[in-house]
Design a protein around this nucleic acid. Structure first.
Lengths: 360, 360
DNA sequence: GATGGATTTGGAAACGTTTCCAATTCCTCT
DNA sequence: AGAGGAATTGGAAACGTTTCCAAATCCATC
């Protein structure tokens, strides 16, 4: 059928000269069918004859046809894009989650757009609005603060599927969102119980604060482990603090210089761990003889340090993938079922940084 | 004008009941103007009377109108989105770049979509095609391999603005892309010269290989510093190697156990640094007395280690921001000017891990 | 007050899809 | 062979914008 080839040649030539891509109209024309049929043939092939599918596929291939997702999205009201909103993408904690989520979403043909908020509620709300304007199909979000009502409201009103990353929505809000939670409480219990089991009684929990779910849960777990063991907890040993490096150092120093110095420390986060290790060195405390250390979060530093630091570990990859999964499920499903909730385990990785306390 | 308020009320009611958002048509109708005028009034206000602008703005506000970016993009052929393609977003190296780029792009009203390729050329090309299909305005990309012709071709044919992150396109290709490069060579020269100046003669360069620009440039800088000093370079001291943690450890071990063991090591990357430090510990070599160490890349480990490790540092934030800047410039401009090229400096951060070699 | 140009306006045509609807074709069964 | 239903098809209407074009209005000048 020379006609078709001529036609294709014509279109190709036009495209080259105009620097414009082939549209489905070109494909349809080249295949000698209507636009509607071409569309049907290209998508799934519901209600099209095999012949048409074949013809269209061939024409599409010859023209190098690539569908325009924008146009499709406009029509179908689904952009095939998902947003991820975290305070700081550069934070390895979030970076790995983003990475894993992107992987799963790509399998489903979704793109992931990222935005960091720098913990600014204003920017959080702006980003949600922006996402909404772009008709993103869903959002993975770790609000910078659990308690900012406005942000939660913005999410509720965004009208897209939402999955929360390791945060607790204010309980009262209308229909909590699906969420992926990490069992920080269980982890803290395990770590504390372990130290108690080694014989430690004065244990310091160095935490950047209880503003958000992870911190809250860890503190709760810490207390719970003491309660379970029938031991009373010296409240002063929970030390909420800022997490800047220098501050962590001086705070750790203060704790370790106290008259009844703790014999074990649970350090939350990279910075606090680093500050603690440095403080221990400054004071000439050797680990684990003079001081046992557990890191919450298994970072490079914990793994590489000498001695290697016992750490609580959870899979960020799982968090990301579970979040993507939940979201996809939400997008497919009718959304009428109760919001699902994934709780991911935390493991205690035993290394060399803990030992029974020496009597002094 | 009760008519208008009634109308607005009607639209709002419809929207609530249909769960559909107000369109520009609604706004125009509510304001009593044509759709065209409404559009003009909402964008910039070129060729519209002040009265119309006012009316439209008010109607838009009352209806909670939010423009639909998809529709706009379809019409204007510009999606306001930029892609970022790297091997691994979770790698802190890239994560920070992404973070910075996103910040700058947001200022310009662009969204950033990310994709990681896992160093798979196939996925790289797929992603470029996907981006193209979504009509992304541009791409920031760090190809997983400098040498894969196909990937470069895919980029060239993508028809979008491209900015390369710290990679060298094959020289011959048609019109190289704008790029943001880091002066790894200069950094390597500085580090090597510094060690030579301290009196070191046997210096090992532990590198994950020369497959990509950063490695190549560092090796070149290393050689150059020797040449500049009029010293001959023992070729064996350049040790290309895989960068898995265990492998890095055993490789470092092998180097440090060699008969004429090097008195200084330049370690490229987190893993190799960690492996080197561990190997030194294993062999009972103390730093810096028995072994001087320079880290290429200023990571947590380098900064926190005891002794703190002297490191080559460059600003990932600058890389990200410069890349975004270049891309935006490219998007605004006619693109006819020569592709710009940003070269970012590398600094040697002096810490405690280097000293003159002891005569043994 | 008519003339002319500049400004503002409304209507409609894109942008590239998908999907609805009616019309056509194709089977199968009487 | 004709009827009836299922499958396929073409044409057109959306989706929500921006932008083009021609018509209408304005304002100053003659």
């Amino acid at each position: 059928m020379p006609f078709r080839f001529n036609y294709i040649a014509t279109i190709l030539e036009e495209n080259v000269s105009r620097l414009t891509r082939a549209t489905i109209r070109d494909v349809a024309h080249a295949a000698g069918v209507s636009v509607g049929s071409a569309s049907r043939a290209l998508n799934g092939g519901r209600n099209v004859s095999a012949r048409v599918i074949e013809e269209v596929a061939q024409a599409a291939k010859q023209l190098g046809y690539q569908p325009d997702f924008l146009a499709r999205s406009l029509r179908t009201r689904s952009s095939g894009m998902v947003g991820c909103l975290v305070s700081d993408i550069a934070n390895p904690l979030y970076a790995e989650i983003v990475q894993a989520a992107e992987g799963r979403l790509r399998e489903a043909g979704c793109l992931l757009v990222v935005a960091s908020t720098g913990n600014d509620p204003k920017r959080e709300q702006d980003a949600v609005a922006e996402f909404r304007g772009r008709r993103l199909d869903g959002v993975l979000v770790a609000p910078g603060s659990d308690t900012n009502e406005k942000s939660w409201r913005a999410l509720a009103e965004a009208g897209t599927a939402v999955v929360i990353l390791d945060r607790d929505p204010p309980s009262s809000d209308d229909g909590p969102f699906p969420s992926v939670l990490v069992d920080h409480r269980g982890g803290a219990v395990a770590a504390t119980r372990y130290l108690l089991g080694l014989g430690h009684r004065r244990i310091a929990l160095l935490t950047p604060g209880a503003r958000m779910r992870p911190g809250r849960e860890r503190i709760a777990g810490f207390r719970q482990a003491f309660a379970d063991a029938g031991r009373s907890l010296d409240g002063a040993l929970v030390c909420p603090q800022e997490s800047s490096m220098d501050f962590a150092y001086s705070a750790a120093l203060a704790v370790l210089e106290a008259p009844a110095r703790p014999t074990a420390v649970i350090a939350l986060g990279t910075r606090i761990l680093a500050g603690t290790l440095r403080a221990a060195r400054t004071l000439g405390l050797s680990i684990p003889e003079d001081l046992s250390v557990v890191s919450v979060g298994d970072t490079d530093i914990a793994a590489v340090h000498t001695p290697a630091i016992t750490a609580l570990r959870w899979s960020l990859e799982d968090v990301g993938r579970a979040a993507a999964e939940l979201l996809l499920q939400r997008l497919k499903g009718d959304g009428t079922t109760a919001p699902p909730r994934a709780l991911l385990p935390v493991d205690l990785v035993l290394r060399e940084s803990c030992a029974p306390p020496t009597r002094t």
